[in-house]
Nucleic acid binder design. Structure first.
Lengths: 149, 149
DNA sequence: GAAGTTCAGTTGTATAGTACAACGGAATTG
DNA sequence: CAATTCCGTTGTACTATACAACTGAACTTC
């Protein structure tokens, strides 16, 4: 469709702006909502739990983070007693991470309160709109999974 | 609506997860894309430009930032010669912000490269999908404009 | 119209999250 | 075994942020 270039650009600008606005607020909201489990730690912990045994390097690659950042975050999570490191018997360089009991528990609690917040916020959306919005976000993020520049 | 709780929850989880995933990467991507214009500064500058004369407090409210943060960011932008402050003649407390010539120019350049990145990323979306996605994001962010929790 | 209150913004201080660079030890490859 | 590559840590620095204390201007109320 070559007819409507302006409209397309406008939508792109809106998407860019609104996603960025969201990103800015997400941090603030996360900090307010769960003061004891920092945002990044939460995210990493969730990933560790999801993958059931991953390495620090995996986390760094997946989140586009420096390995030093991951190292410190993991250190913090370990100090909080939420993750454990197990040396890989085959390769001594590798530390396999997984959540402790407390980690799984903390994660569940955080997830619950997050879901409640979203629930309230999106209370007046129809299930149909929610599902379409979710689909768009999935599609958007999938596109960017292996980005560049 | 007690009928369809599962589907709704699932969508909520997806939205939550995907928005968070986006937020994670946004910073890294922005840092890579425009090393010279820091992410936050860019965002604030864009808002200032968009609103043609806004106050620091407006920015703080819109992005859920502390006024001190805004104050420093504006200070940085001013030092870079990208924004100017004009005292309001009617209310001496207020500083009306707007972009300088250089600010507008820097913004245009940054916006162009950002838009190009989004363009490429969203190349295979129809204009219709883009517009609906944009609308959802606007609605989502508007809902949260005056939140609490 | 002076005192108290609210509002806009700045500054001091502290913290999280991040990157980059330099390193250490372990594994792989020649 | 020497060189290289891989995983992780530590040192250092910087950005973004919050909270609290403050200044100064404008409203309120008597």
């Amino acid at each position: 469709m070559p007819g409507t270039p302006g409209e397309r650009e406008e939508s792109l600008d809106v998407i860019q702006r609104e996603l960025t606005a969201f990103a800015r607020r997400a941090r603030a909201a996360a900090a307010r909502l769960h003061p004891e489990l920092p945002l990044v730690s939460y995210t990493l912990l969730a990933h560790i739990d999801d993958q059931q045994g991953c390495r620090a390097t995996d986390l760094a690659a997946h989140y586009m983070l420096d390995k030093s950042t991951v190292s410190r975050q993991i250190g913090a999570l370990e100090k909080l007693g939420l993750v454990e490191r197990h040396p890989d018997p085959d390769d001594h360089r590798i530390q396999v991470l997984h959540p402790t009991e407390a980690g799984t528990q903390a994660l569940a609690a955080t997830q619950a309160s997050r879901r409640a917040a979203y629930q309230e916020r999106l209370a007046d959306w129809t299930a149909d709109d929610l599902s379409r919005f979710a689909a768009y976000l999935l599609r958007y993020n999938a596109t960017g999974d292996a980005p560049q520049s």
